[in-house]
Design a binder for these strands. Structure first.
Lengths: 351, 351
DNA sequence: ATCACTTGTGGGAGCGCTCCCACAGTACCT
DNA sequence: AGGTACTGTGGGAGCGCTCCCACAAGTGAT
């Protein structure tokens, strides 16, 4: 029986040492070739590469991580219990962007579900155990302790939506303010006079910015902002229904609704239908996210598209850069990085 | 300057050795406590646990992986380029199930995107580098070399849909055959006589099984199976459109369509509308997946729900068991495991 | 009292790699 | 000729852990 581990020594994966022996060089030289160091002669490099190919050598990740103090992996922290995250396409799109950015890298992606308190506890542990080189944070609430924990642990992190106007972490965001303005300006341009807004969860900074955009668009068009036309939602379908009911009671004369998400708009639409309002004839409806729901709604929903995939890609790129900066001998370029990507209004029949 | 790595020795994360010194015991004893070995006296255990708490000790994953030859991580291999994977909710649901099964475990989830040849190449490398203890495989095509590679490398793996009737790997599947039967039986019970079927990609075993279910349901109801009513699709919206057009040309008298996915059904719906057919009055429509699209379609789409989240959970459970079996000293229970979960027909207005 | 076993414990060896120091060899100056 | 530099290379030390052997101490049967 082998002394250690599951697979015995014989016939196991080849090690650096074995490659070195085969190529007739020292361990250090093989390491240099593997890691692309320039301080190796052409002849030696060729010999080592041949040995690597013959033996099918692949460096052991754990050993490398232990010796070099890096893991070549980053984590995407997913606030799992919020079902919203999975029912909306946001997550998938983000993931695709992250995946794309990682494609030409040696980096691997670790998905960490951390919603419950216990999980967040454990998350800290894992990160402390240095399981990853950096962390991508999405959908963070204002009072989430995680970002600050990461700062304290000096773990590179990038956050998808800044928590406030003066976010300290590197962040990537879509232009929530501008997107909301686009939506409202569009409705006004279509001749609507009484535009209501169902907000998102207001502890999310992006939702606040959408409200700001809504307000400013109205003001600049010379309309007074009527607070009775603003009803808080929570990004969900049920929230959309509740908010729409409240709005119809307060301002039955409204002729347009800008919802902070497509799902919210779907909820609003149900209530409008039940109240006998035709879309867009009586009430124009604009959503946010440009999700599959928007395309398949009846009538198809005008919606603000966020470049979520691009955001995922940008976040990853920024994180990789930060990780590289942290490596020994890197020339630190520690500017604070805040990136904002433009949104796009996708016009459909609902407005 | 610290000699090694980014973080210097001083003030870094505490090590086993430091905990041992603090608790006044040996390194081995601390290791035993950390790993829950019963061969430790109560007093010692308490002392060690106190030291761990005081120092905030967290075991270093890389060191453990290197010494113990295990990583406490499993991989979910995602065939990324197939956009279908991201646009359908299949993926999210699966992921949620996997996450749920992992919640009470120490296991972490590594997401590996492997679609292009180059990526699959690299995937083999990563797996060979022993980066994970086991692999979850979803949406595998009949000619995918990956499953066999994994068998050969003796890496525990569980596959989401078996590749054929005699799959060698442990697999979890939903009852594609039964689901299709449910759908067709439902249509017949509603009085439909001419039921067409738009298939999925026929190199996917599950799609074949749905065709089998479609055929058998018709036969057992005493109907002849007309091959002209079966048109191959590819699970996509465009495929659904093309197939529907072909079917309408060949059999303009059809009064029901069973589509192999909701997205396919959405494509079919468009063509039916353009052809002036009313749903469900002229043609009843049934989809597969019970996705958000089904709920938001006009009219809402009757669809076969697969317990995808449960599948993800089951796959993960099975994989964890296999991984545990592989560990030294485990009592091997090497039965071949094939699990099939029941589907459910969700009836809506389209049929 | 002796032997045999059990329980708890310490610490050496080793996992496979990276980092870095030492040194041989060569080249180019003074 | 001697010095100074640089290039390429070998291999020791060490990353932090697990595994296992050795051994002390206790327990009970002979």
């Amino acid at each position: 029986m082998a002394s250690h581990g599951v697979r015995g020594r014989s016939g196991g994966r080849p090690t650096l040492e074995e490659v070195a022996a085969r190529a007739g060089v020292g361990r250090g030289t093989v390491s240099r070739v593997i890691n692309g160091s320039p301080r190796v002669s052409e002849a030696t490099r060729a010999a080592v590469e041949a040995a690597v190919a013959e033996l099918g050598y692949v460096p052991n990740t754990a050993a490398r991580a232990l010796a070099a103090n890096r893991t070549d992996a980053i984590a995407l922290v997913v606030p799992e219990p919020e079902t919203r995250f999975f029912t909306e396409p946001y997550f998938s799109d983000m993931l695709r962007g992250v995946g794309a950015a990682l494609t030409d890298t040696e980096m691997q992606l670790l998905l960490i579900f951390a919603g419950s308190d216990r999980e967040r506890q454990r998350l800290a542990q894992y990160l402390a155990a240095h399981r990853v080189d950096g962390v991508l944070l999405v959908s963070v609430h204002a009072d989430d302790p995680l970002p600050d924990m990461l700062s304290q642990l000096e773990i590179p992190a990038v956050i998808s939506g800044p928590r406030s106007a003066d976010e300290t972490l590197t962040s990537v965001d879509s232009d929530n303010y501008g997107g909301a303005r686009q939506a409202v300006e569009h409705l006004l341009a279509r001749g609507r006079r009484t535009v209501a807004h169902i907000t998102g969860r207001l502890d999310v900074y992006g939702a606040q910015r959408r409200v700001d955009g809504y307000r400013d668009a109205l003001r600049e068009a010379g309309h007074a902002v009527d607070e009775l036309l603003i009803e808080p939602g929570d990004f969900s379908e049920g929230g959309g229904r509740r908010a729409m009911q409240a709005l119809l009671e307060r301002r039955p004369d409204l002729d347009a609704v800008f919802a902070a998400s497509d799902v919210t708009a779907a909820g609003a639409r149900q209530v409008l239908r039940e109240a006998g309002r035709r879309i867009p004839d009586d009430v124009a409806l604009v959503g946010y996210d440009d999700s599959a729901i928007a395309r398949h709604m009846e009538p198809p929903l005008t919606s603000v598209r966020q470049p979520i995939e691009e955001m995922g890609r940008a976040m990853t790129d920024l994180l990789l850069r930060e990780v590289a900066d942290r490596r020994p001998s890197a020339t630190r370029e520690l500017e604070r990085r805040q990136m904002v990507l433009a949104t796009e209004l996708v016009e459909r029949a609902s407005s």
